[in-house]
């Protein structure tokens, strides 16, 4: 019962959605934090503070905001992606953006003092310097990915509100757990939680081992 095909399906879907969201979010968060880390202006400080503050934004608020956007009567309603996995991916990507930007900014800011300067003085152009910095901070960046991925995988608000917890379509770990609790199936909900925990721990362990080997 516990490891039924439905659980397997939910597991795969959750991993797909959250990893896609992490990659998508990184595609704008990492360049943004690189850019922010190489500037000292007051505006940069303001932007970074805003992102820091947004980390704590409740997931349901992000979900609700996105629902308003994606609803048929909302400004992006014409896309018709509400209650699809894409909506969850988008929502989670937005949700983890402040987290990635804040953490990556810290890492890059520290690296900037050393690697950025060295790269520039050794003749690198801006893009080469960015790349060098990324290379040097890769293990930290991977850890940031993991944290962001875990947050995406473990969040409920966005998945529930813009995903709709539709059986066989947008049902992921957390929404299933919420539903099973509502149904009173606490043991099943706990089992799902345990699977979630095992998956996250396994991925963390694998990446740690890979990380150790690389250095």
């Amino acid at each position: 019962m516990v490891l039924s095909s439905e659980v397997l399906e939910i597991t795969i879907r959750s991993l797909m959605i959250s990893s896609t969201a992490t990659i998508l979010s990184s595609s704008w968060s990492i360049p943004l934090s690189l850019r922010l880390s190489s500037s000292h202006s007051k505006l940069t400080n303001l932007i970074v503070s805003i992102f820091n503050a947004l980390i704590g934004l409740p997931t349901v608020i992000v979900g609700l905001f996105l629902y308003m956007l994606l609803s048929r009567t909302g400004p992006l309603g014409f896309l018709q992606i509400l209650y699809t996995p894409i909506a969850i991916i988008l929502g989670e990507a937005i949700l983890i953006t402040p987290l990635i930007v804040s953490l990556a900014y810290e890492v890059f800011y520290k690296a900037r003092v050393e690697y950025w300067e060295v790269a520039l003085t050794l003749g690198a152009d801006t893009y080469q310097a960015y790349r060098t910095m990324l290379r040097e901070t890769l293990s930290d960046v991977i850890i940031i990915f993991l944290i962001a991925f875990s947050r995406a995988l473990g969040e409920l608000g966005v998945a529930l509100i813009v995903g709709g917890n539709i059986r066989g379509f947008t049902r992921v770990f957390t929404t299933t757990i919420a539903l099973e609790i509502a149904k009173g199936n606490f043991e099943f909900a706990l089992t799902l939680g345990l699977i979630l925990l095992i998956i996250i721990s396994t991925i963390t362990a694998i990446i740690r081992i890979l990380g150790v080997r690389r250095e």
């Binding site: 048929r72 009567t73 309603g77 509400l82 209650y83 917890n165 539709i166 066989g168």
Partner: peptide
């Protein structure tokens, strides 16, 4: 035909109808 159920609170269920979702 695929029927997709969105399970929310009573108030929200009706609100979704109003929004056309």
């Amino acid at each position: 035909v695929v029927i997709q159920f969105i399970a929310v609170g009573s108030g929200a269920a009706l609100k979704l109808a109003e929004k056309g979702d």
